[in-house]
Computed example of a mutant assay.
Amino acid sequence: MTEDEFEAFYGRWAGPMTGQVYLVTGDLHEAQDAVQEAFVRAWDRRDKLDAARAPESWVRVTATRLAISRWRRGRRAAEAWARWGRQATAAAGGPQPGGVALERALRTLPPRQRLIVALFYVCDLPVGQVAAETGVSVGTVKTQLSRGRAALAPLLGDRPGLLEDRDA
Rank of each mutant, 00 (worst) to 15 (best):
Q36V: 11
E37M: 07
A38M: 04
F39Q: 02
V40Y: 10
V40N: 10
V40I: 13
R41E: 11
R41Y: 05
R41P: 01
A42P: 01
D44V: 02
R45T: 10
R45P: 02
R46F: 02
D47F: 03
K48E: 15
L49E: 00
L49A: 00
D50R: 14
D50S: 09
A51S: 13
A51L: 15
A52Q: 01
A52L: 01
R53Y: 05
R53C: 08
A54P: 05
P55S: 02
P55N: 02
E56P: 03
E56Y: 05
S57R: 15
S57A: 09
W58C: 00
V59P: 06
R60G: 09
R60K: 14
T62N: 00
T62Q: 09
A63F: 02
A63R: 01
A63T: 05
T64D: 07
R65P: 00
I68P: 01
I68G: 00
S69K: 11
S69F: 00
W71K: 15
R72F: 05
R73F: 01
R73I: 04
G74T: 10
R75E: 12
R75A: 07
A77W: 00
A78W: 12
E79I: 09
A80D: 01
A80E: 05
W81D: 10
W81L: 15
W81C: 06
A82V: 06
R83E: 12
G85I: 10
R86K: 11
R86G: 09
Q87C: 08
Q87N: 08
A88C: 09
T89H: 04
A91F: 03
A91G: 00
A92T: 07
A92G: 08
A92Q: 10
A92W: 10
A92S: 08
A92H: 13
G93N: 05
Q96R: 15
Q96D: 11
Q96I: 11
P97V: 15
G99C: 09
A101Q: 12
E103G: 12
R104G: 13
R104T: 13
R104E: 14
R104I: 11
A105M: 05
A105P: 08
L106T: 02
L106C: 11
T108L: 08
P110F: 07
P111I: 08
P111R: 12
R112A: 12
R112H: 12
R112V: 13
R112K: 13
Q113R: 15
Q113P: 06
R114P: 05
R114I: 07
L115T: 15
L115I: 10
L115H: 08
V117D: 00
V117L: 02
V117P: 03
V117A: 06
A118N: 06
A118M: 11
L119A: 01
Y121D: 03
V122I: 14
C123N: 13
C123P: 02
C123A: 12
L125K: 00
L125I: 05
P126F: 04
G128T: 12
Q129E: 14
